[in-house]
Write a protein that binds this DNA or RNA. Structure first.
Length: 639
RNA sequence: GCGGCUGUAGCUCAGCUGGAUAGAGCGGGAGCUUCCUAAGCUCUAGGUCGGGGGUUCGAGUCCUCCCAGCCGCACCA
């Protein structure tokens, strides 16, 4: 509706400018900052002033003079320095808005987009930093799907890497446990590993010679056999299972778990390595600090200017492969650039496909994407560049350009949060503290969710002491999920989140529960109307006949803004700045809550007036529900 | 040293491709509940948008220099 109006207005303005001045100008109507300045504004007269050598107001007058207004536009005025401000026919617009859905759902087709996110090392419990990744990835997926794109979600499991190796060392060498003993350890297994991982770090520090255990383990993990490999498989599986359960509490799902062991075991890397070698993209160093390593020289590209070491190690001198090496092979596979595929198996308990060495014949098609978006924190920007450089060196420049690093800043602990975790000593006066899996410093995702649910239960019980416990639990879960997800999307991606318990646990103001509460209020109005035997819904026909003077500016402001949902989602998904969705949702909810107090519906005797207010409520509810769905915030019936 | 990010109200942060009077939440002060759930609303105080220079009709937004903080530049990821 809004888009169509804007386009037809732009066309007419462009034609006027062409006719008047013989200039071709791209007219871009925008939304004025205050509604009394109109609903759409055209600032082009200001830009044309120099070119046409007239003052902008005069240009505005001239354009407006012969302009035929499209249906739905009531009036045009020249205001300020020379803005053309257009005023819409409010009832017509409202009727159209009630008729259509906030985002026209097109069926998913066309080019496939792979979104890779979460990617937690399978050696410890998920912490709140991982949650930022998972939530951003998930919201991106939901946005893209809502816009009609075909999306495949992959979660990369680094089950042959150093971090897993360290926990294997912890069980095998530090604790002296065998497979059966580790297998019998009780849940929460990821919490046990969290502590053990930190312990191993200290154990290495006490005697650096112990790092030999890590090397040995890494080799066995890559080779895939021996006690250490068995332990690795067991630990990774138990941990991933825990991660998936944590993510499910948040409503985050995956299509495919891509396991690093399969990339190695199925010779993906060997093929990628061979191509890189033949293309001259990597070379074997014979002396210097990288002697015995296969490295990718980066010195010649300006993108990598100023590196201390201009060469990136792809294969270590002991023959094991670095993460970037494996990631290049993985990225090639994602685009279908390796002439090989994974084998796949369905992981029944966790309801997800995973890549394996030996799988089933009947499985969905994975990979072969046209675009790949990797959700990875900004500290790994350099490595993502190296992956792209790898594709470029193999002459896959198109695919390199379609490899998008969705970068976001990390989550750190506020000084207060560090104190509460007993890490107060780790912060130097008032500075935030970076989380560290290696040191065991961080807020575990499940702990935070537990706290959020406990607080939700308290809040609900305080409002309704009679509520049965099952219903209470259910509501608490929905509120906790919304609080946490919204907390993670509301901040812009290039800002470090200084995690603070009070803030994260707040259900007021800029919060997920605030949005939920607004929707519950809107729903309550409709329910009460039905109970009173009144119309609980306004039809588009009724809306179209609302007398113009009943549209108070604040009611109109809300309904007009709900028309922007699709635009906002599109801009957010394209710019990868998903916080815009959160801000928009908050803005709508704040406006609605203000109206809620100013314009009561149930007590309003005049049916036209009631219809006007209800139409705004309806449009709001539809819009915010859509936004919540895209952010993954569930909407409870009651709170 | 090189690269990236950040600096806006007491605190946490918005401010979309430069545009009309710089906003929100929290916190502070004053109020609102026989009336659709107060997880709410209204009013109020609080700002040389880190600093200097520049570009232009117009700069929180673009360019440049400087200051401060954080993060990268591993045979970890």
């Amino acid at each position: 509706m809004l888009t169509a109006l804007r386009d037809s207005l732009a066309e007419r303005i462009q034609a006027r400018i062409e006719a008047l001045y013989g200039v071709s100008h791209t007219a871009r109507p925008e939304v004025p900052p205050r509604r009394e300045l109109g609903d759409l504004a055209f600032p082009g007269a200001l830009q044309l002033a120099r070119e046409v050598k007239k003052n902008p107001r005069q240009i505005g007058e001239e354009i407006a003079a012969g302009l035929e207004l499209p249906v739905g536009v009531r009036e045009v005025r020249i205001e300020g320095p020379g803005f053309l401000n257009f005023y819409l026919d409010r009832s017509t617009f409202a009727a159209a808005l009630l008729r259509e859905s906030p985002i026209e759902t097109t069926s998913a087709e066309g080019e496939k987009i792979i979104v890779e996110h979460t990617n937690i090392n399978p050696n410890k419990a998920a912490h709140i930093g991982h949650l930022r990744n998972a939530v951003l990835g998930d919201v991106l997926v939901r946005s893209l799907r809502a816009l009609g794109h075909r999306v495949e979600i992959q979660n990369y499991i680094d089950d042959t890497g150093v971090q897993l190796a360290d926990v294997v060392v912890g069980f095998a060498d530090l604790r002296g446990m065998d497979l059966a003993t580790v297998s019998a350890l009780p849940e929460p297994f990821d919490y046990t590993c969290w502590d053990l991982y930190a312990e191993v770090g200290r154990w290495y520090e006490d005697d650096p010679a112990r790092q030999e255990f890590r090397r040995k383990t890494l080799h066995e993990l890559e080779a895939g056999n021996g006690l250490r490999a068995d332990l690795g498989r067991l630990i990774a599986r138990r941990i991933v299972s825990r991660h998936l359960k944590t993510m499910r509490r948040l409503g985050v799902d995956y299509d495919l778990l891509t396991r690093e062991s399969a990339i190695l075991g199925l010779e993906f890397f060997s093929q990628a390595f061979e191509s890189l070698r033949q293309a001259g993209a990597i070379r074997l160093e014979t002396d210097g600090k990288n002697a015995g390593c296969w490295v990718m020289p980066l010195a010649e590209s300006s993108e990598f200017a100023g590196l201390e070491d201009p060469d990136k190690v792809i294969v270590r001198s002991d023959g094991t492969v670095t993460y970037v090496g494996k990631d290049i092979a993985y990225q090639l596979w994602k685009f279908g650039l390796l002439d090989m595929d994974f084998r796949y198996r369905y992981w029944n308990e966790e309801k997800v496909w995973e890549s394996v060495l030996d799988g089933v014949d009947d499985h969905p098609d994975f990979g072969r994407a046209a675009r790949v978006i990797n959700v990875i924190d900004t500290r790994q920007a350099y490595l993502q560049k190296v992956v792209r450089a790898g594709l470029e060196r193999l002459n896959h420049t198109e695919e390199a350009a379609r490899s998008i690093h969705f970068a976001y800043e990390m989550v750190a602990l506020s000084p207060a949060a560090a104190d509460q975790l007993g890490q107060g000593g780790a912060t130097d006066d008032g500075k935030r503290l970076e989380m560290s899996g290696r040191k065991g410093i961080g807020v575990k995702a499940d702990d935070l969710l537990d706290q959020l649910e406990a607080k939700s239960r308290d809040e609900i019980a305080a409002r309704d002491a009679e509520l049965e416990s099952q219903e209470l639990e259910e509501r608490a879960r929905l509120i906790a999920r919304a609080a946490l997800r919204f907390f993670m999307v509301k901040t812009t991606t290039n800002r470090v989140i200084a995690f603070d318990f009070d803030e994260a646990l707040s259900f007021e103001g800029d919060s997920g529960p605030y949005l939920q509460y607004s929707l519950v209020r809107a729903a309550n109005i409709c329910r009460r109307l039905s109970e009173e035997g009144l119309d609980s819904e306004v039809s588009p026909q009724t809306a179209a006949e609302i007398p113009a003077e009943l549209w108070d500016d604040d009611l109109w402001e809300l309904i007009y803004q709900t028309a922007e949902v699709r635009d906002r989602i599109e801009v957010a998904a394209e710019s990868l700045e998903l916080s815009q969705i959160a801000r928009f949702a908050l803005d709508l909810a704040q406006k609605f809550n203000a109206l809620y107090h100013r314009h009561p519906i149930l007590q309003e005797p005049d049916p036209d007036r009631r219809a006007t207010r209800l139409a705004a409520t309806q449009a709001f509810s539809k819009a915010l529900r859509t936004l919540c769905e895209i952010m993954g915030l569930p909407v409870p019936e009651r709170m």
